[in-house]
């Protein structure tokens, strides 16, 4: 005679809102779980009318898309919220941003339309600061890396230690103008499984060219989106902005 939750089922989802947010400064040390918990509390503080799952432990319906790793900053993280009451995206963005700690900043909000968010993202653009590494050293290592067809690295994943190829996922790797004390690496990386992260690329640079920064590198994700032929990324929220503008005449971020 198992108990069942009493009362009516939870209200249906009436609107989905997609957010772009940034993870900045010291908050780059948040793990994905930390971000998720902080978001849920922020949503409650901001009184966002979330839709909830059914059952004894109802959870707000939040869909995350590929989180930046712990220690990496990001200007382009995405999440989709399911709401039980319609809300103006700009208002939601303002309310939630005010309720989140500085460093977790909501930078865009649109009403979801059309295809799924995950289908619109298959690559990331990163910039990695390398304090303590001189520009020529990085330039040489990158050239060496790009010359290879396969570069295996090893990393502990949730499925244990895995060995995987880094090279195939790299669409672009360039040494941007740095200086003698801090080189800057720009990367465009395809999303693969397991995900090739900036630290994997750095491991690969160590493997092929012996590059071993004495100070931990500082990666920042600048963009996520679908990779175009020319190596640029398409803004994953652009279709929603266009559809929302055309179909509903809504203004949005």
């Amino acid at each position: 005679m198992a108990r069942r939750p009493e009362g009516p089922p939870p209200p249906p989802v009436v609107q989905r809102v997609r957010l772009r947010f940034a993870k900045r400064g010291r908050l780059r040390f948040l793990s994905h779980r930390d971000v998720a918990r902080t978001f849920e509390r922020g949503l409650r503080r901001a009184a966002v009318p979330m839709a909830y799952s059914a059952g004894f432990s109802p959870h707000p319906r939040i869909s995350w898309v590929g989180a930046a790793p712990t220690g990496a900053a990001s200007e382009a993280e995405y999440v989709e919220l399911a709401l039980a009451v319609e809300m103006e995206p700009a208002q939601l963005q303002a309310d939630l941003d005010a309720a989140l700690p500085p460093g977790l900043d909501v930078v865009g909000a649109v009403v979801a339309e059309g295809t799924g968010l995950a289908e619109r993202i298959d690559a990331s653009r990163w910039v990695v600061r390398l304090p303590g590494v001189a520009e020529p050293e990085l330039r040489g290592a990158v050239t060496e890396l790009l010359r290879q067809e396969v570069v295996q690295v090893e990393r502990a994943t949730k499925d244990g230690r895995r060995r995987f190829d880094v090279r195939a996922a790299i669409v672009l790797a360039v040494c941007r103008a740095g200086n003698d004390t801090c080189a800057i690496l720009e990367l465009v990386v395809r999303h693969t499984t397991p995900a090739v992260r900036p630290d994997d690329v750095l491991t690969a640079l160590g493997v092929v060219a012996g590059l071993r920064p004495s100070v931990p590198p500082e990666p920042t994700r600048l963009e996520q989106g679908r990779l175009r032929d020319d190596g640029t990324l398409a803004d994953p929220l652009a279709p929603d902005r266009n559809d929302a503008g055309r179909l509903a005449g809504r203004s949005s971020a």
Binding site: R26, F29, S31, D34, T70, G71, P101, V215, P216
Partner: peptide, 16 residues
């Protein structure tokens, strides 16, 4: 800050 990527769960030291 440069030491934090080298320790377990660095978020515990950042405050905020």
């Amino acid at each position: 800050e440069p030491l934090l990527p080298r320790v377990r769960r660095p978020v515990q030291y950042v405050g905020g």
